[in-house]
Design a protein around this nucleic acid. Structure first.
Length: 125
DNA sequence: GTTCTTACA
DNA sequence: TGTAAGAA
């Protein structure tokens, strides 16, 4: 089997995590993981996939969550990560805007106060 | 020999 | 989840 670093067949993953290949296929069937496939339709798992599988095991074994629940939790987890990056983006742009505004204000030239004067207008009607 | 799909306890 | 059959 042509082995490369960071990529594993279902048998390798099963041995590493001490679980049955069938269980891994079941996780995929439930939509929790999406391992790549070779041209020969063989599943290829990445380190990221393995981390996800570890998370799935924690949720199911230690917390008693079923696969459907884990699916929802993982979706939420990823969504939170997305929102977090959006917040960071907004924070940086806002910070930049504030700095720009402060720079603009401090560069303004101070001006003498103007006076209000009374004027008379003559009209011939 | 390994993996895939499907099926069943 | 574990096991197994049959095909690839």
């Amino acid at each position: 089997m042509g082995r490369k670093k960071g990529f594993y067949t279902i048998g390798m993953v099963a041995e590493i995590l001490n679980i049955h290949p069938h269980t891994l296929r079941e996780y995929e069937r439930e939509g929790l993981i999406r391992p790549k496939r070779t041209a020969g339709n063989i599943r290829i798992y990445t380190d990221e996939d393995i981390e996800d599988i570890k998370f799935i095991r924690e949720m199911t074994q230690e917390l008693g969550v079923n696969l459907a629940g884990v699916d929802i939790i993982m979706r939420m987890k990823r969504q939170i990560e997305q929102l977090h990056s959006v917040i960071e983006s907004l924070e940086s742009t806002l910070r930049k805007k504030i700095e720009e505004e402060n720079a603009r204000r401090s560069s303004l030239v101070k001006k003498e106060p103007s006076h209000i004067v009374e004027i008379k207008i003559e009209r011939d009607d």
